[in-house]
Design a protein around this nucleic acid. Structure first.
Lengths: 259, 259
DNA sequence: CGTACCTAGTCGTCTAGAGGAGTTCAACGT
DNA sequence: ACGTTGAACTCCTCTAGACGACTAGGTACG
């Protein structure tokens, strides 16, 4: 049986924090391994002799840190750390497209994860001002909007939305759900726009409630946002991709010349 | 007077979430500008006709998103956004060093902020395994450790720790508090190591309690970590710089070849 | 004038209890 | 054999109240 210690009313930390600290330590040290169920609220109330809200406050603490997930009707479970994926700066190298692999799938497989994609939606929309500026098109132009969700080993790790000028995407598989081998970048090159380089803008913040839902993360888990603009060899922007990643699942690697 | 709407008991969202949504919308639309005090718990209880815990739950929601800060004994206030600084991928270009400016100062000035640096500490230590691996030196080598805090307009935005092999730094201003014009990269080049390129590893997470203190941020504010390794023209690693940035204060920009 | 104290207002924490809703599984009836 | 029901368990949300601690401002006292 798990030794859950006890709380000290004379401690300067409040009881709920003491309980959170005890549980956190058990998780960190592996007495509560990933996937394991925590004692139920009722058990913790009984064990520590505190009120319901006090126990819930402690659990909330751990949920906010992303250490545990609560499942309605089932229990609270130690969160299994998502596999960390390193994104090298050559992940869009042409050789991957030549091999018929989209960037995410190629990258995830080399990292030993099982990648999958779902919630693919393709629409034709008016362009937003932010995207129009990056694509150097007018506000009245239309764009193909492709959004999708990426999962690694079944866990959602990223949602992405691509914007491709209608002028480039029209009549190509880019406007279809299935873009074929090599992904949309391969199709953009098929359309005569050889890719030259990308710019990426990286920042991080807390997720919105909707992002929390689609990424299946609790409060207290930050996300990274990455806005990538792809340019062809004529320096024409051919795609803007706005991605929201579960921060803890990624390390982004870049190479910067000292010039 | 602020129109705070009302809650709908037949709505499928629970009351605490409705209240959070209403307040969030007011903040987003500017009816509750940065620095403004939210109605007190007592006022919200009175206004919506709910219990204390319900109101606190709503406020907790907003705190977790980093939208507001609660100050014990004073009230809950809309958080003011710090100035966002864009870090372009050419920020370490040689021309900046030639002009005698360290990267942070050069960048901040062009962005129109008042930069400053404090809490500079310089020590000579044993190298940690992580740094040793990046610097390609043995675990028994020593490194010069330079840590400092950066502020923009008086607000802390970043703490950084640099590790330079003792072999390179010995007898140079790198081991002094004041490194002279152009910063440590200028001094490394003076020492005969012409810089060729950097690698940067970017990730994001919630801050530790100590980081919260030195960066002067409350709970609910994520940080970005950036580990930069500098290489000279012989591809020898000459510096590792580990930085922790207040995420909301930065956008990192990179250029990636499509190759 | 300055200090110490008091007080009202704020958020922080805890208690005790209620009903609701999702999950699981065993008992039951068909 | 199969589906339904119900009980027991879980976490979710809300109510009502209590005390504590911190802040700011006014007041009384030295």
């Amino acid at each position: 049986m798990l030794d859950l210690g006890s709380i000290d009313r004379s401690d300067d930390r409040p009881p709920y924090r003491q309980i959170a600290d005890i549980l956190r330590e058990h998780i960190r040290q592996g007495q509560l391994p990933p996937g394991e169920q925590l004692p139920s609220e009722a058990e913790l109330i009984e064990y520590y002799g505190v009120a319901r809200m006090t126990v819930r406050e402690a659990i909330r603490e751990l949920r906010g840190e992303g250490l545990v997930v609560a499942m309605h009707g089932k229990g609270v479970f130690v969160r299994s750390a998502p596999p960390v994926r390193r994104l090298a700066s050559d992940r869009f190298a042409r050789r991957h497209r030549k091999e018929g692999k989209a960037a995410f799938l190629a990258e995830a497989e080399t990292a030993g994860h099982t990648p999958s994609v779902d919630q693919i939606r393709v629409t034709n929309e008016m362009v937003s001002p932010e995207v129009a500026e990056r694509l150097k098109i007018t506000r009245r132009d239309r764009v193909i909007v492709r959004s999708r969700r990426y999962l690694a080993d079944g866990q959602p790790v990223e949602v992405a939305t691509s914007y491709i000028p209608e002028k480039i995407a029209k009549g190509t598989p880019i406007a279809e759900v299935d873009t074929g081998p090599g992904g949309i970048y391969a199709r953009i090159e098929d359309a005569g726009h050889q890719l030259a380089h990308f710019t990426e803008e990286v920042s991080a913040r807390m997720p919105t409630p909707e992002e929390r839902k689609v990424l299946d993360i609790g409060a207290g888990i930050p996300v990274m946002t990455l806005v990538r603009t792809a340019y062809d060899t004529d320096d024409v922007p051919v795609e803007v991709c706005d991605t929201v990643k579960v921060a803890r699942a990624y390390v982004l690697e870049y190479d910067v010349p000292a010039m």
